[in-house]
Design a binder for these strands. Structure first.
Lengths: 127, 127
DNA sequence: CCGTATCCCAGCTGATACTG
DNA sequence: CAGTATCAGCTGGGATACGG
């Protein structure tokens, strides 16, 4: 992965179908990453996701998993039982997204102090 | 970078000060990544960014660079000249973010076809 | 249990006009 | 040139109620 260097090109980001824009539109929302990370650990049923993600509404969880399913990142399995049971898990495609997300996470962990310091300093000067 | 593995932990994502959430809140908006990538190539003045980023309003460009500056990712240099000139460039912190963004970009480039295919297939079934 | 349907509001964003 | 100020529209997302 580190052998070839794939720089972000100017032409890419200006284009409206810029790949980075696409992925950010997909996971840059409020809940998608949380769902992906949870499903990266193991399969979850709907109610498990609902309980695990603090503050999400049933509506938004539905919309989020539906969008992820539409994009082929998550698969949905309905078990014909009483009471009904629906399992969600990552597809191979979804699992492949975990690596770049972890890279972002690693950056955040490493630099969150720097950001906080810069912000504190900025706010101190600006009042 | 690939030596140590930094998995995204469940405890992280549920916490409201989850590092990944933080960074997504920062660059997950409509314009921040575009500005960062452009400044990753070279210093830009305000009007250059404005022209380079198709569709951004003056107001949103101002808000975006201000937020990035506040977080220490971008530095702003005012030249006392007539007409006035303001240069924006990445800080070291901002430059360090380019790598994970490129990882995300690489993923997007590699898998955009898969996503499109999944979406087409899904829409075909759903009508 | 797993959703869908409806209503509604906050805030993000663009458009426009104005200023140092 | 590089912003700031103000207004208005749209959309994301929560609350609630209902259905399979």
């Amino acid at each position: 992965m580190s052998a070839r260097h794939t720089p972000v090109r100017l032409a890419d980001v200006q284009d409206e179908d810029c790949p980075t824009r696409e992925v950010l539109d997909r996971v840059g929302d409020k809940w998608s990453v949380l769902v992906i990370v949870l499903l990266g650990e193991r399969t979850h049923r709907f109610s498990e996701l609902h309980r695990a993600i603090d503050g999400i509404s049933q509506r938004m969880l539905t919309l989020t998993v539906r969008a992820l399913e539409r994009d082929g990142l998550v698969s949905r399995t309905v078990h014909a039982s009483v009471p009904p049971r629906v399992d969600y898990r990552l597809t191979d495609l979804g699992r492949s997204l975990l690596a770049p997300l972890e890279a972002l996470n690693a950056w955040a962990v490493e630099h969150r102090g720097d950001i906080q310091a810069a912000r504190d300093e900025h706010d101190r000067r600006s009042g």
